[in-house]
Simulated assay, not measured.
Amino acid sequence: MIIEKYRDNSRLARSVWWDKEVNSERGTVHLRELFGNKVFNFPKPETLLSRIIQISTIEGDIVMDYHLGSGTTATTAHKMQRQYIGIEQMGYIEDVAVERLKKVIDGEQGGLSQQINWQGGGSFIYLELKKYNQTFIEQIEEAKDSKALLQIWDQMKAKAFFKYSINLQEFEGDLEAFKQFEIDKQRKLLCELLDKNQLYVNLSSLNDADFACTEEEKKVTQDFYQIKK
């Protein structure tokens, strides 16, 4: 086990933790104290993540959570002097996780703070992936009528990445039938044409002129991935 290999004072962790310190109710209370109302369902408490981080890492290690949610992993890692990477696709990352990390830096005293005498400090960087097909999806969702959707379709034909199984000529030939559908079905059909593996610009396409990445975007990406020029 990791704790036996790397810790001088290692001890076996129990497989199941039943105590109240690690249930989601404690996480919910903490978030309510921070934001004044319920902003996330079933958030994990910092006391739970602190146990996991303590068992598996030492100060300075990188902790990664690719479903960041309410941000508990990041806030706990921050307080415990770990580096961290958090990934989240849902829009609430800006309103919950990012704002929560700002409060941690300001020295908020909920969760793990009093136990470890957290006084605030530190910093973090928030980045968004450069959109590609995701841009079309957002335009489709915001379209008010069929006319707007057909204009988006024209743009998609010129620039979008489609699923390999899609026959564009066949779809184009069925446009009159497409126009007869309710707008919700039209939105769904257009979204289904798009290759979901190309929602965002891939690292391998960073220098591809078709994606129009700015020099600043290239520099930030290269710094993040530690790519030598």
Score class of each variant (00 low, 15 high):
Ala212Glu: 15
Asp184Glu: 14
Ile53Cys: 08
Glu217Ile: 04
Asn37Tyr: 08
Thr75Lys: 09
Met1Pro: 05
Glu94Ala: 15
Gln81His: 14
Glu59Phe: 06
Gly86Arg: 03
Gly173Met: 02
Asn202Arg: 13
Glu46Tyr: 06
Asp174Lys: 15
Asp184Thr: 11
Lys102Trp: 07
Gly36Asn: 05
Leu31His: 01
Tyr84Phe: 15
Arg11Phe: 07
Val63Gly: 04
Val98Asp: 10
Leu31Trp: 02
Lys144Pro: 08
Leu203Thr: 10
Gly121Ser: 10
Gly36His: 01
Trp153Arg: 01
Ser24Gln: 11
Arg26Ser: 01
Val104Arg: 03
Phe178Gln: 00
Val29Tyr: 02
Leu150Trp: 08
Tyr132Glu: 08
Lys163Ile: 11
Gln180Val: 03
Gln151Arg: 13
Asp210Ile: 09
His30Ala: 00
Phe42Tyr: 12
Lys103Tyr: 00
Gln81Ala: 06
Gly27Val: 00
Val16Ile: 15
Met90Lys: 14
Gln155Glu: 15
Tyr126Lys: 07
Val16Leu: 13
Gly86Leu: 05
Glu217Val: 06
Ala148Pro: 03
Glu142Ala: 15
Glu128Phe: 03
Lys5Arg: 11
Thr75Leu: 05
Gly27Pro: 00
Gly110Thr: 13
Leu49Trp: 08
Ile2Pro: 08
His30Cys: 05
Gln155Tyr: 13
Lys44Ile: 08
Tyr6Gln: 09
Leu112Asp: 01
Asn37Gln: 12
Ser70Ala: 15
Arg32Lys: 15
Ser24His: 11
Ile125Ala: 07
Val63His: 03
Asp208Thr: 10
Asn133Pro: 09
Asp8Leu: 09
Gln114Ile: 09
Trp153Ile: 04
Thr73Gln: 01
Gly120Gln: 02
Asn9Gln: 13
Asn197Ile: 01
Ala160Arg: 02
His78Leu: 10
Gly107Ala: 06
Asp19Val: 04
Leu175Met: 14
Tyr6Phe: 14
Lys228Thr: 12
Ile87Trp: 06
Phe161Ser: 07
Pro45Ile: 06
His67Phe: 15
Gly107Trp: 12
Leu127Trp: 11
Asp8Gln: 03
Leu127Arg: 10
Val39Lys: 10
His30Tyr: 00
Gln54Gly: 13
Asp95Leu: 08
Glu141His: 14
Gln115Asp: 11
Asp106Cys: 11
Phe124Asn: 03
Phe35Tyr: 08
Leu34Val: 09
Tyr92Ala: 09
Arg14Asn: 05
Glu99Pro: 07
Gln155Asn: 15
